[in-house]
């Protein structure tokens, strides 16, 4: 079992049947995952980066035995999640962002004790580990506070203790810093890094749509969109792929969304990807160009559309650029919506 990868999926797929507001005839299908093939070796902190609705949570739910795949197979710690769910559960734990689990009338340590017992921990061991981990996360002074009295950040730290308390082989963190303030998010990330350092044989799968978080934490990353894994590599390699290109952030006077007579930005020779986000006073454009010599042509094109340059910045490739390059839109645009902007 030890030689098996910590996580392995082969052509994994999941289709949801969406119930309509009324009767059965209204049922629709939503493809949440499509042919996902991944392999995460032991000891790795693996990230899934993708916008909301990309299928990250569905993948985690399948790996955590909460959901069955509709096609393909998935293994955690060498065990089939569909047929060996009970064995898988002994090896894993999960912490989700914005989690509200636990009982409000119990104290932090009582809640944690309860969950520890669900995993069969001895009383004394559970209590010792709870005290130890509360200390590490800096919330031991709240051990006796009722969890209904905790702030979001403290509650999430408690959830982290719950997730790691039971000594899992594989930990799933689903958007763990969602809704946390900067300090709490930093504490949580520090904890995760430290835990991986202290437990080199364990594996951690993290989903996030925060690029900086993925970049900072993950040994390896898969970029996922519309249920499909688009690329899977180390953050450095992913960014390296764009190194020969020139990447610019442009701030220009507002440009209309509709392509004008002189065509789209993408049509300018040498432009590889474009993502535009419109603000009230200006438009923000992320550009990946074949090389910097293409830039004047782009500016001329924009000028032709009545939009002049306000600011320009050239930068090293980021995961955001990798994402735009692969998907054709920014990460903060949901899979199912275009709320925050649009690509041309």
């Amino acid at each position: 079992m030890d030689s098996a990868p910590a996580i392995k999926t082969e052509n994994l797929g999941r289709i949801y049947k969406i119930r309509g507001p009324k009767k059965k005839g209204d049922q629709k299908e939503l493809i949440a995952l499509k042919d996902v093939t991944l392999e995460v070796p032991r000891g790795q902190l693996f990230g899934l980066l993708g916008p909301n609705g990309a299928g990250k949570t569905t993948l985690i739910k399948i790996l955590c035995t909460l959901l069955l795949p509709t096609s393909g197979t998935a293994f955690v710690d060498g065990l089939n999640v569909a047929t060996q769910s009970q064995d898988v559960r002994r090896q894993i734990s999960m912490v989700s962002g914005g989690e509200t689990s636990g009982f409000g009338l119990l104290t932090v340590e009582e809640n944690l004790w309860m969950f520890a017992r669900f995993y069969g921990l001895d009383n004394a061991v559970a209590k010792r580990r709870i005290a130890e981990m509360l200390e590490i996360l800096g919330i031991s002074d709240r051990a006796r506070a009722k969890i209904s009295d905790l702030s979001t950040g403290l509650r999430q730290k408690m959830n982290f203790v719950r997730g790691f308390l039971t000594d899992p082989n594989v930990v799933f963190l689903d958007e763990p810093t969602l809704g946390l303030d900067v300090t709490a998010a930093r504490d949580v990330r520090t904890f995760v890094k430290q835990w991986m350092q202290d437990h080199p044989d364990r594996t951690l799968l993290l989903t996030t749509h925060y690029m900086a978080e993925a970049d900072e934490l993950c040994d390896r990353l898969a970029i996922i969109d519309k249920g499909q894994v688009l690329k899977d590599d180390t953050p450095t390699n992913l960014k390296h792929g764009l190194q020969q290109n020139a990447i610019f952030n442009l701030k220009v006077q507002p440009i209309g969304k509709k392509p004008q007579d002189n065509g789209r930005i993408e049509d300018v020779p040498g432009v590889q990807t474009v993502a535009v986000r419109d603000h009230a006073e200006f438009s923000e454009i992320n550009l990946t160009l074949q090389d910097e010599n293409v830039l004047p042509a782009v500016l001329t094109h924009l000028g032709g559309r009545g939009s002049s340059l306000i600011a320009l910045e050239k930068h090293e490739p980021t995961l955001e650029d990798v994402f735009i390059n692969l998907v054709g839109r920014r990460l903060d645009q949901d899979t199912h919506g275009q709320e925050n902007g649009a690509s041309e």
Binding site: R90, Y119, G120, L121, D122, V125, R128, R129, E132, E135, I136, L137, G138, T166, D167, D187, T190, F191, Q194, W195, D198, H199
Partner: peptide, 14 residues
């Protein structure tokens, strides 16, 4: 944040 002290495997009842 201090380092994790208990890296030993924990016994779990079945």
């Amino acid at each position: 944040m201090s380092a994790m002290r208990s890296a030993e495997r924990v016994h779990k009842a079945v």
